[in-house]
Every structure is written in C-alpha cells, then in structure tokens.
Amino acid sequence: MEKIVIENLTVSYGKFIAVKNLNMKVKSGEILGLLGPNGSGKTTTIKAILGFVPYVGKVLVNAEKIGWMPQNAPLYLNLTVEENLRFFAEAYGVKNIEEKIEDLLKLIELQKFRDRLVRNLSGGMKQRCAFACAMVHEPDLLILDEPTAGVDPKLRKSFWEYFESLNREGKTILVTTHYMDEAEKCQRIVLMRDGEILAEGSPDEIKKIALRGEIVKLKIDHAEYALKRLREMAWNVSIEGDELLILVDDARIRIPEIIRLLNDFKVLKIEVVKESLENAFLKLIGG
C-alpha cells in the first residue's frame, strides 16, 4: 500500500524544468528521505504533491490528513505560539482543541513560551512551533521540508526522536534533509539531482550504488604478491601501504572467495570498508 504514488511528474517554471519525468513512491509506514543538493527539485516535488504548483503527470495521495511543515518554518509572526496552534487547529476543524494544544506544547516543550509572539522566538523554537502546527490535526502522512535546517544538534536529535516514535505509531513520513546522519535514519532514500532521481534505496543500497559495489580491505603479508595474483585473475585491486583494497560487487559472497584464492598467504585482517553516506552522496552527485 502506497501513501504517495508519483508517475511521470514534470514541473516547469517558465523555461526552467524543476522536476523531470519523476517516478517515485512513498510506502505506507516508512520514513522516506528525499535528498539532493539545493535546487535539485525536492521542494518542487513536495509542492506538486500538495497541489501548489501546476504539473504534468500523475500524483496520487492516499492519505486522509497530511501534515506539512514547509521550509523555513513559516508561521504568523504577530501571533503567539498558542495562537498559531489555535488558528491551525480551528482551521482544520480539530475537535478537542484545548487538550490538543496542551499536548503539543508539552511535546515541543514550549509551555513556558506559549504567550510569546512567534516573531520573538529563536530559530529552534520557531521550528518546533511549526512542527507542532503541522501535527495539530493528527495527520497520517507527514511531509517535512528540511525540518532541522539551522537547528542545534541536541534539538535535531530530539526532532528525530519525535519522527521515529511517530513512525513507530504507524505514521508515514516524507522528509528532506541535508544531514547525512539523518538520512541514515531513513528506511529509504531517494536521491535527486537536477530534477531527476539519481539513486533510490536503503542507505546501504545507496552506498553500494555509489561505489558500484563494496570495498574489501585486506591486511596481508607480502601484499605485492597478493596484488599481482589477484590482478592476474582480473580483480579490481589497488594497494595502499601494506593493505589491499578490493572492489567487489557483493562482499558477503566475495570475501570467502578471496580467502580461498589467497590461502597460502597470511591474512592479518579482512574487513568491509565502511563508506560514509556523505561520500556516497558526493560521488553520486559529482558523477
């Protein structure tokens, strides 16, 4: 069951094509991270999902209620935290408004600042308030556009704790971010560049795609001989000091194979190189 199905989506602003023939799905109950450099079409895709930009193609949303937290946390600056919450609660026709407001103020830990004008809030507080406004009608699908931009590490952590606990409750989350540690927490990632999808999959799958495989690091005696033997057998190997770096399609299958081939060598250490998502991301974007 998909919450969002996007088929052949194209969005253009005049001559500029922001999103090109995009195909994407958001599965029910997952956290999907939409990644990509600035201007890659993430926000435009979200606006198309919400119906705020004219587009060509098909966008299907199977959610009853959508909670949307736009970029830069737009709020009514001359209303207080509580008044903002109340406005959106009333606008969405929420039933038990008072209770809901209390719950949310508690969740975002802004009870003390409930009567402060949003104009006078710090960036992090504003971000929290915007998140609460998006949650006010208990949406089953959350669309969060850079919810943690400009937020300190501690608050980023607690934001993701909210997201993950909401996800455990069964809520589907579509989130964009530039932070790779956040992307690692997504069950699936869609990586965009210039309005197109570059790669798609779990964080580990993205890394594999980026490297076109995995790298096995081998610490071995007489590394030069081992290198020669592996090269003769057409393995993709390079040497760094006394360590061999072997590019393989699937480490789990290839490691036993390597050990068998080099059974007359003394293997000191063998491990799969942990590629960071950031490197993978840069490789994909740059390539």
Binding site: L75, F88, C133
Partner: peptide, 8 residues
C-alpha cells in the same frame, strides 16, 4: 511570510 499556502 509564506503562511498563505499553509493556511490554504
């Protein structure tokens, strides 16, 4: 202030 789309 970008609140238009939000209230829409």
């Amino acid at each position: 202030e970008q609140t238009l789309e939000l209230s829409l």
